[in-house]
Design a protein around this nucleic acid. Structure first.
Lengths: 183, 183
DNA sequence: TTAAACTTTCAGTAATTTCTGAAACATGTA
DNA sequence: TACATGTTTCAGAAATTACTGAAAGTTTAA
């Protein structure tokens, strides 16, 4: 894998952004590399391209597997393992999105549920619980909504996105329609 | 601000989650504390409640201001500055969402635009640029879509969320309707 | 079996991030 | 002016996270 200046700048940028996206620098670089690579790469090729240790690559691959972002591939007559991005950009983005939801929202949701079953012990806690309830409901709403969106076909999702804030008009239309039929 | 066990467990949890959400432990604890607090708190009260240094609180408040999550308040006859959460849970979530979009997507979008104006230098780069274009389009789509959603009224957004994957049906309806009128 | 070719693990080190506390700064008051 | 009451800054320390490289583990083949 030749790191031309163009590819290198992209890979390095993904490294920098990595931490904001939930993984570390080298893991970020690894995804970027595998996404632009035409062919699957071996662990050694990755280590060489990024100038990082073989051990680090091994750990990074493990991490990327837990995100379901890469796929193993075997080449006939070769004992090495080759890795490639697991699907289209769209699919990868979906996985990142879902995985982050799991890591960033689910634990909080479950903590809030636990807290909210207890009776408030004083005035402050009454107020606090109201806030916690609001947070809980919001997180739950987002969770449901996003899992429903993910179950929609890409085409339909695309229509929806293209529609943008025009969704508002469609919703109005729906109301009118429903009102008419319920006359 | 008395840290009852209930409030403490919530605040500490937000501290742990903080880093996943884009800020550090103490900043996470600080938001949590200010959200559940009934009254605005002074920097010293925050430092005391969380057992952290006054300097750390000052830095954290600065950070939270850059996220537009807190508001300054002055009490008459008191030179101290008091802080409180800047708005409802809904508003706070919106700000976090928008701020993260800025930090996590905008820089990548701009890098990709720069890369994509250059002509590919070889076969690998042709393939790479295709991928980069896909990433670019996806990020751009999400950016537009999310800013349009944010410009919708909370009620409409709520309708949309409640609708869930039922949006699909509404979209079909819209198509039928448009086809009829265009006959 | 033994060896060759590969992968994973993990203790120790390096790099990065966060936090403290003292000094500097700001502002109002006597 | 000097002082009291606050806030911010920032150098250094502490804590956390990431990385290396050598040793251990795994798999296939002869």
């Amino acid at each position: 894998m030749q790191m031309t200046p163009m590819i290198e700048s992209f890979v390095m940028h993904f490294g920098e952004m990595g931490s904001k996206w939930g993984f570390n620098r080298t893991v970020g670089q690894m995804v970027a590399l595998l996404v632009v690579a035409k062919e699957a790469l071996s662990a050694n090729q990755i280590a060489e391209a990024l100038s990082i240790s073989r051990g680090n690559v091994s750990m990074g691959l493990k991490e990327l597997q837990s995100w379901r972002l890469i796929q193993l591939q075997h080449k006939p007559g070769d004992r090495k393992e080759y890795y490639q991005a697991a699907g289209s950009i769209w699919e990868l983005a979906n996985r990142v999105f879902e995985e982050r939801r799991k890591r960033e929202m689910d634990p909080t949701l479950s903590l809030l549920r636990n807290i909210l079953v207890d009776a408030p012990a004083n005035d402050n806690e009454v107020h606090a619980q109201q806030k916690l309830q609001e947070i809980h409901d919001l997180l739950e709403g987002i969770t449901k909504w996003s899992s429903e969106l993910q179950s929609m076909s890409p085409e339909k999702l695309n229509t929806l996105m293209k529609l943008g804030s025009g969704v508002g008009k469609v919703l109005d239309m729906k109301d009118k329609f429903l009102n008419k039929t319920s006359d």
